[in-house]
Amino acid sequence: MAARLFRNARLVSMADPADLVPIEQAAILAVDGRIAYAGPEDGLPAAARGAEAIDLEGRLVTPGLIDCHTHLVHGGDRAREFELRLAGAGYEEIARAGGGIVSTVAATRAAGEDGLVRSALARLDRLIAEGVTTVEVKSGYGLDLQTELAQLRAARRLAEERKVTVSTTFLGLHALPPEYRDDRAGYLARVRDALLPAVAAEGLADSVDAFCEGIAFSPAEVDAFFATARRLGLAVRLHADQLSDLGGAALAARHRALSADHLEYTNEAGVAAMAETGTVAVLLPGAFYTLRETKLPPVELFRRHGVAMAVATDCNPGTSPLTSPLLAMNMAATLFRLTVAECLAGLTINAAAALGLAGDTGSIVAGKWCDLAVWDAERPAELVYRLGFNPLAARYWRGE
């Protein structure tokens, strides 16, 4: 691709996550999809001469949004469980009765890879329509070798169908599959000896994840899983401290995890451990809202210890059927009391860090991919405070 010049922009680069004051009359020069210059138009380099020019007509420009925690690829839905929760059933009650994750496993196994791609594209398109240029997609609804690989292949195929960057995660410890209900040790051995090596050998996952919780997997089980994953060269992330404090944040930090996610019950020692290793705290207000949780994540502790906070939709069929990153930002502000700057950083530069991609995306600076969201908005606050409102005017992925 030749050089492309975006001019007449009001630029919020997120180079400084706390600075939301737009650079007026700004320009962005992209060469072969990467940013060569971003700043005031009067500072454009000579390389801008002859570039294809696109007039953004004074619109607000931010980095393309990054949804760093989703379960986009799955079969079926769990609307029935939503009804049960409305009638008073709790998360654990539904899970122990054979609902929850296990019910999605059956639908996912039956869908086939092509069916998984088709259904995921509909959800992905909703994210793209609100400015998402990078999305993370987890497996974890197959719980057998064939379907886990199919989920990961389907996730990789999304990037062939749409102009979007896809980061894949093997969620190897999500729930016990029904066929291993009475053989927990057998399933853990199967994941260690068959699933993890196959995922690594095929290069299908950028990282691995686990659900560390009383209804899922213990810290000791996750610790062994992560140790194996790290030996295979895979980065790790963790669903941590969502429903109880099992020390998940500290466990994630011990393995130098890219992120620990949920974190409602995380204690200060866990926060300090995350700060020491640079592990990003991924906040998921959609799940908090859907499950009617009341225990807030320790946002003040994250601030005090300097832990970067990301925000994501957690799009999944059971506990966060959310495909709006803009609404996720509003929820993070309203429910968790994040500032506008924290919300926008949470879906840009900090989300990139949670995926290990901060060197390539998440801010509009020279050297990174030219991933842009162009908004019909005067101030960044408009992206956070309005409900049911999508001011996206244009979206560019790698300059296109």
Rank of each mutant, 00 (worst) to 15 (best):
A257Q: 07
Q242L: 14
G247V: 07
L246W: 09
D245V: 14
T266R: 04
A240S: 13
H255E: 10
L234N: 06
A250M: 10
V236N: 01
A260C: 10
D245L: 15
L251T: 14
L243H: 12
D241V: 00
L243F: 15
D245T: 13
A250I: 14
S244N: 01
R256P: 10
R237H: 05
Q242P: 09
R256A: 15
Y265Q: 04
A260F: 03
A253M: 12
A257K: 05
A235Y: 04
L251Q: 09
E264C: 15
D241Y: 00
G247R: 15
T266G: 00
L238R: 05
L243S: 11
H239M: 12
R237K: 15
G248V: 13
D245N: 15
Y265A: 01
A260N: 10
A249R: 15
A260I: 00
D261W: 09
Y265S: 01
R254C: 01
L251V: 13
L238Y: 04
A257N: 03
R254T: 03
L246E: 02
L243E: 09
A260T: 02
T266H: 06
L258G: 13
L251Y: 08
R256L: 13
S259L: 04
A260Y: 05
N267I: 00
Q242T: 14
D261F: 08
L251W: 07
Y265N: 02
H255T: 04
S244V: 03
D261E: 14
G248H: 09
A253V: 09
L238T: 03
L263D: 01
R237L: 04
A252R: 07
G248P: 11
S259F: 03
V236F: 00
G248R: 11
A257Y: 04
Y265C: 03
L258P: 13
L234M: 12
L258C: 11
A252I: 02
L258A: 11
L234T: 05
E264V: 10
H239W: 07
L251C: 08
S259I: 12
Y265L: 07
H255M: 07
V236W: 00
L234G: 03
L258H: 13
A250Q: 15
S259W: 00
S244C: 02
A252H: 07
G247Q: 08
H255N: 07
V236P: 03
L251I: 14
D241K: 00
A252G: 14
L246F: 11
